[in-house]
């Protein structure tokens, strides 16, 4: 049985710690306070909680107004309602003016949307946010990382988007791992046949695949790219210089997210073979998260095959 811990609870815990230190930290919800488990915050700081009703555009624009007067609003609801329904408000009133608003998107990824189906499975959020200048974009691996990421984005001035999950989120790090915004993290290095870049809880699958590959004599380097923007280009180029081959694994459309970000680095800085593992530009359906990942080509076997494919291409180039 896989160990789980709620990234939503972790968000509220991180927020509570921030709020205790900083009276300017406030929370905006759009009928999402139960979704993100905000009750402890609302109980402790009723004056610092603003409910807009089911009105995300209003929530984002309102957060811009709050931030322009010196507050640090966190707006939390489902990822797609921030990044799609209120996309223009995020871009024009938060990102363009560089206002200090932190956006927290739940159900980020197909697997985190799981049984809700496509309307609540958000696998385009990172691509959308990444194209908007000036937003820090973060995909923490698990609950303990979410809590740290929330505090890390509060320490920087300006807009940030953090993707969180379903509330039944697999644990990736059993022990405390410090979160360093803007830096990749090497999770495993058994050799330099290929680099595996990944983020989110699919890291667990990537690590399994790396073990299987190692037993078969293919040695990989696994790196977590939790900060998609600003991207740690320098470290990525350094790894690619050593492995000369890359596979990306993410719970996101193959277009726009981590795979695209790494492809951009490869194309501009260091041309090497790349295989992307993710949702292949199609709409998924309802199901259990692990089943969905297997069904839509993000299984351990898919990752293993992707690495074999890229290593072969590297050998023939």
């Amino acid at each position: 049985m896989m160990k789980t811990e709620s990234t939503r609870v972790a968000f509220t815990e991180g927020l509570m710690e921030l709020a205790k230190e900083d009276p300017n930290v406030v929370l905006v919800c759009s009928d999402s306070m139960l979704v993100i488990r905000a009750q402890p915050f609302i109980k402790a700081y009723p004056d610092r909680f603003f409910e807009t009703g089911i009105a995300e555009q209003n929530a984002v624009a309102c957060a811009a107004g709050l931030a322009s007067c010196g507050l640090t609003p966190f707006f939390a609801t489902y990822a797609g309602f921030i990044t799609m329904r209120a996309c223009e408000q995020v871009r024009t009133f938060i990102a363009y003016p560089g206002l200090n608003v932190k956006l927290i998107g739940a159900n980020g990824g197909m697997a985190s949307g799981e049984r809700e189906g496509v309307t609540h499975q958000f696998f385009e959020d990172l691509g959308i946010m990444r194209t908007i200048p000036g937003i820090t974009v973060v995909v923490p691996a698990d609950a303990s990382q979410v809590k740290q990421a929330v505090k890390a984005v509060a320490r920087i001035k300006g807009p940030a988007y953090i993707r969180i999950g379903s509330g039944r989120d697999p644990v990736v790090f059993d022990n405390y791992e410090p979160f360093k915004l803007g830096k990749i993290r090497i999770l495993k290095e058994s050799g330099k046949d290929a680099a595996l870049f990944t983020n989110g809880f699919v890291i667990n699958r990537v690590l399994k695949a790396a073990e299987i590959l190692e037993r078969e004599g293919i040695r990989t380097l696994v790196a977590e790219v939790h900060t998609l923007k600003p991207l740690d280009v320098e470290s990525i180029v350094q790894i690619l210089g050593e492995t000369r081959a890359a596979v990306t694994v993410e719970d996101h459309n193959i277009i726009g997210g981590l795979g695209s970000a790494i492809a951009e680095v490869i194309a501009e800085e260091i041309p090497v073979p790349l295989v992307r593992v993710g949702l292949r530009d199609i709409y998924p359906e309802s199901g259990r998260p692990e089943e969905l990942l297997d069904h839509y080509g993000i299984g351990v076997a898919d990752i293993v095959n992707a690495v074999k494919k890229v290593v072969k291409r590297k050998g023939s180039s």
Binding site: F50, Q57, N58, A61, C62, A63, A64, G65, L66, A67, S68, C69, G70, L71, P73, Q89, T92, F93
Partner: peptide
């Protein structure tokens, strides 16, 4: 968008 932003300012 102006009224929503004004709400944020007034609440702040």
């Amino acid at each position: 968008n102006g009224i929503s932003i004004g709400i944020g300012m007034a609440l702040a």
